[in-house]
Write a protein that binds this DNA or RNA. Structure first.
Length: 127
RNA sequence: AAAGCAGUGUGUUCUGUCGCCAUAAUUUAAUUUUAUGGAGGAAAGUCGGGGCAAUAAAAGGCGCCAUACUUCCUAACGGGAAGGUUUCGCAACCGGCGAAAACAGCAAGUGCCACAGAAAACAACCGCCUAAGUCAUCGUUGCAUGACCGGUAAGGGUGAAAACGUAGAGUAAGAGCCUACGAUAUGGUUUGGUAACAAACCAUAUGGGUAAACCUUAUGGAUUGAAAGACCAAAUAUACCCGGAGAUCUUUAUGAUCGGAAGCUGCCCGCUUUAUUCCGGGGGGGUAGGUCGUUUAAGACCGGAGGUGACUCCGGCCUAAGAUAAAUGACAGAAACCUGAGCAUUAAUCAGGAACAGAACCCCGCUUAUAGCACUGUACGGUAC
RNA sequence: CGGGGCGUAGCGCAGUCCGGCUAGCGCACCUGGUUUGGGACCAGGGGGUCGAAGGUUCGAAUCCUUUCGCCCCGA
């Protein structure tokens, strides 16, 4: 299913603090990724938070646009990550760090690469 | 005729696939499925005003802040409408039209006005005048000369600004001191107007600018903002309250027996307590989190009536985003619009473009940003040269 | 959402309340002197539309209005 429901979003402030202080991170232009293994009740395998800096994009319209594009490509590529994780659960933060507006095609490709990379890192870490 | 500039209005529609948020129905172990709805004229800036909420508070005064032609509209406003005055534009003049105005008061008081200039506000530095008064002088006894006491704003290369303007009369010299014409201000009367104000007449005056200087007058203003505020409430710790604490027996109970610590006593018995420890229960405040506040309102649309207008009244009809690390999207296609190529021109065709910008308690305004398109103004008439 | 502050020379700051004074100070920069040469020192010099636009005034960095950018605070 290529949907994106409410329980796949990370909303708790304390968990976000934990993710940003203790999480593993890597960088793939124009995205910065932070991730951390987690535990929760519902049976989805990822909780994600998407962030665009107010410093880089002053207009709310542009920030909303970028967040919507990232969310859309996350939704379409989520199956890659779910296959790699094999039932484990992960908190994820996606931070946009460029100064230019992205277009959907390149962003989609980057997200796909990022998820493959994330799967490799996860396997390496867990053995 | 029209570019540009300024203002006002408008702010593209439809189809398919996959998704997001809310509500309703349906169905479950979680949930699923279906239907309906889902950004703006500025949602922006947060500059005014109000609702709403909490706190404070007799009335009133002082202080502080804001506003300032008039009448009206509005819940209210620093907003709006109509009107007046002044200035500006068409424009040389008149009418007319349009635009702008922080347009109360400096003739209530105080302060300031650099440089220059005699002087920047109770004006005698130079200049002009010695008629009157006092004193002195003398070949001249005067309509003399000199000094003192004075008079005088007509003239003076300045300056942003110089003490009503021009002409006459008058005088020793002069002066609105007086006269004529003109200008301005204040007060009064009459007429028109709800009023600001306008016109006419009379009287008085001639007082430089500055209140986006202090200030005066009039009017208004309590403070803090939905992160306000109300309610529910896990985990952990816990004020306070209640019950209990080890061992043995059995009839399993509000049971019996033995025992520990402390106090009363010198000691035993007996009585009382048992906390600062631990266990169980209650319990208040309250964190994470959640619910309400929160979208039915100074509401939209249609029709009628009143008013120059802002706007008001009456009737009908409708309910229209509601998220909370924050939904309203992505991809593909079509139509209309604009630009370029194409063509003598139009059409077909091809390529490209489509602004400013995203609700966060809710309204009314203001301000600022806006591609393309539409409309209005700039862009009237007469007279004179 | 609400509140407060700052934009002046390449850099860091005065001056703004209460309008006129050459828009000033330190570092940096340039020229000359000093030294065998450099630094330090001495003397002299250049560089500013006071964030932007409009207004008030004879006159605005300063007063008023609008606007742009930056920073801080309240949970």
């Amino acid at each position: 299913m290529q949907n994106f429901a409410k329980n796949e979003r990370l909303c708790s402030k304390s968990v976000i603090d934990q993710l940003f202080t203790q999480g593993h991170s890597f960088f793939k232009h124009p995205l910065k990724i932070k991730w951390l293994q987690g535990q929760w009740d519902s049976n989805n395998s990822v909780k994600v938070v998407i962030s665009v800096s107010k410093h880089r994009f002053k207009k709310a319209v542009d920030r909303n646009k970028i967040k919507r594009l990232i969310r859309e490509s996350f939704r379409l590529n989520k199956f890659v990550l779910e296959n790699g994780l094999k039932g484990q659960k992960v908190y994820l933060a996606i931070i946009y760090t460029s100064n230019e507006m992205p277009d959907f095609a390149t962003l989609n490709r980057v997200i796909n690469d990022v998820f493959h990379r994330l799967n490799l890192d996860y396997e390496k870490l867990s053995g």
